[in-house]
Write a protein that binds this DNA or RNA. Structure first.
Length: 475
RNA sequence: GGCGGCAUAGCCAAGUGGUAAGGCAGAGGUCUGCAAAACCUUUAUCCCCCAGUUCGAAUCUGGGUGCCGCCUCCA
């Protein structure tokens, strides 16, 4: 970090304002990002969330903070249990399967591994003591084999999601009335489960209240506490988590610890499809694996980051395809010096341009991580690179280096894939050669036909003539 | 119904009081045997509508219209 601390501003959902970012303790930044529930394939919406917060933690490290980035994996949940039952396998096996699939997707998208990646099932014991603490403090109560958080005992309830407790009660009461059993158990309709009893043959753990499972919100509060501490700097997630998930985390943690769970609550906007949110429940999603078949990881990241993280993105194949051309310009500029010896030297003007670019890039990112502006500066530096001649390659290299360094902060590799062939292209290519050879044979130009065959053999492709025409295989 | 957010060129998208970034597509040009790629130039008198505050507003205020999200699982 420079001698002076980078002045970063972030939009805090808690206050609804952009605020100066000041970590709890100096250069250390503790971030907890709500991770996936592993019961199905990840889609573009999940990709956005991971790309956005990956970029944030990359940038904070880039400007010199010591970041501890934690992203959990929710591997115990009703959705997992139901899906596993449908498939006739154990919930733990299903969770493992989709955990690996998630890791594959994240790796492909150049999303860095977090410093810690706790799974809920690893923290059952800590969750149980967390609940015991809440009961002891009078913020939770046992009802049958369940334990509920007593929302009425926590004054600040609703401060994140901007909810009015009285109004919540009305809505919640209607739902609870529909479930008679709950009505009997809960003191208050809005109270949420910290621990839920389960049947013996279901996924569960022994607890002071009997056999059961933790409630969803509990895991995050517990893992934050045990891995990062009682107050962290940034807690992030998709905007749908604001209420009730993060609201409930705040209630649990702050009721127990009596001080803030996180200083800054950051939330990313959603991907929409035809003006509707992309969601598994709507069945209108594109999985990351689908997209990766068609688009490079850099293109997907560029697509996501060209919109500010809090704004919605309306997805269409056209809009994603449109970034491909732009990406090519950056890639081309980044590789203009490939295979060239560096000539000349970078003059003052070049060094000044590099410094100007660095400052502008940071200025953009310091303003609530405005990646859209940051990207526009990448294009500007790419134009400057392209404008330099080969004989000024040393000067050009200075700018290429800063381009690559800053593109990497956004997780863009700018790898040169321009000459990479797809499998189908390779097959067609051989087909074209065989067609040309066939034409030569038909013209009785056997010298030419044999030359084509030999050159193919030399690169490891054997050509075999058959009564049905030529075929080939690799040697 | 309550709360929150968004509306900027053909499309995507920045811009929170000082006179419209950037990308895609389009147009013209350089280059080329012809192309393609690349590069250069160019493309919103105007920011959903109405009223107001101000010397000055896309940016602030009030009203309206449309859309989205949350309030239940959801990134």
């Amino acid at each position: 970090m420079n001698s002076e601390v980078e002045k970063i501003q972030v939009f805090n959902t808690l206050t609804g304002k952009k605020e100066d970012f000041v970590p709890v303790s100096g250069k250390t930044v503790k971030i907890y990002a709500c991770g996936p529930t592993v019961y199905d394939s990840s889609h573009l919406g999940h990709a956005r969330k991971e790309i956005v917060w990956d970029t944030v933690q990359r940038y904070l490290r880039f400007v010199g903070y010591d970041v501890v980035y934690v992203r959990n994996i929710t591997d115990v949940d009703d959705k997992i249990i139901n899906r596993a039952r449908e498939r006739g396998i154990g919930p733990d096996k299903l969770a493992r399967e989709y955990t690996f699939a998630f890791w594959e997707d994240m790796h492909a998208l150049n999303v860095q591994a977090p410093d810690f990646e706790p799974r809920a099932t690893e923290f059952i014991a800590q969750m149980i003591s967390f609940v015991e603490g809440l009961i002891k403090a009078g913020h939770a109560y046992q009802a049958g084999g369940d334990v509920y958080f007593d929302v009425g005992s926590f004054n600040d309830y609703g401060k994140l999601g901007k909810k009015n407790l009285d109004e919540l009660m009305v809505g919640a009461r209607e739902q609870v009335v529909a479930q008679e059993e709950l009505q009997k158990l809960k003191k208050n309709a809005v109270d949420f489960a910290l621990w839920k009893s389960a049947d013996k043959d279901e996924l569960g753990w022994q607890s002071p209240w009997g056999y059961g499972r933790p409630g969803w919100h509990l895991e995050c509060s517990t893992m934050v506490k045990h891995i990062l501490g009682e107050t962290i700097d940034i807690h992030s997630g998709g905007e749908d988590l604001v209420f009730p998930h993060h609201e409930n985390e705040i209630a649990q943690s702050e009721a127990l610890h009596k001080h803030p769970l996180a200083r800054y609550w950051l939330h990313n906007g959603f991907i929409q499809v035809s003006q509707e949110k992309m969601a598994k429940s709507l069945g209108n999603f594109k999985t990351i694996k689908d997209l990766l078949r068609e688009y490079e990881p850099d293109a997907i990241r560029l697509f996501v980051l060209q919109t500010h993280y809090r704004n919605p993105i309306d997805f269409s194949p056209e809009s994603l395809a449109a970034v491909k051309s732009g990406l090519q310009r950056l890639v081309r500029a980044a590789h203009l010096n490939d295979g060239l010896e560096l000539k000349g030297a970078a003059g003052k003007d070049i060094l000044a341009a590099a410094e100007k670019f660095k400052a502008e890039f940071r200025q953009a990112m310091n303003n609530d991580f405005n990646t859209a502006i940051a990207i526009s500066h990448l294009y500007q530096i790419a134009d400057q690179i392209s404008a330099l001649k080969d004989k000024e390659s040393a000067a050009r290299q200075v700018l290429i280096d800063v381009l690559l360094e800053h593109a990497a902060v956004l997780g863009l590799t700018l790898l040169d894939n321009r000459k990479n062939l797809k499998d189908e292209q390779k097959e067609k290519l051989v087909g074209i050669l065989l067609e040309m050879r066939q034409k030569a044979k038909a013209d009785k130009d056997f010298e030419r036909a044999d030359a084509i065959r030999k050159q193919l053999t030399d690169i490891g492709i054997a050509v075999m003539d058959t009564p049905q025409g030529a075929t080939w295989e690799t040697i």
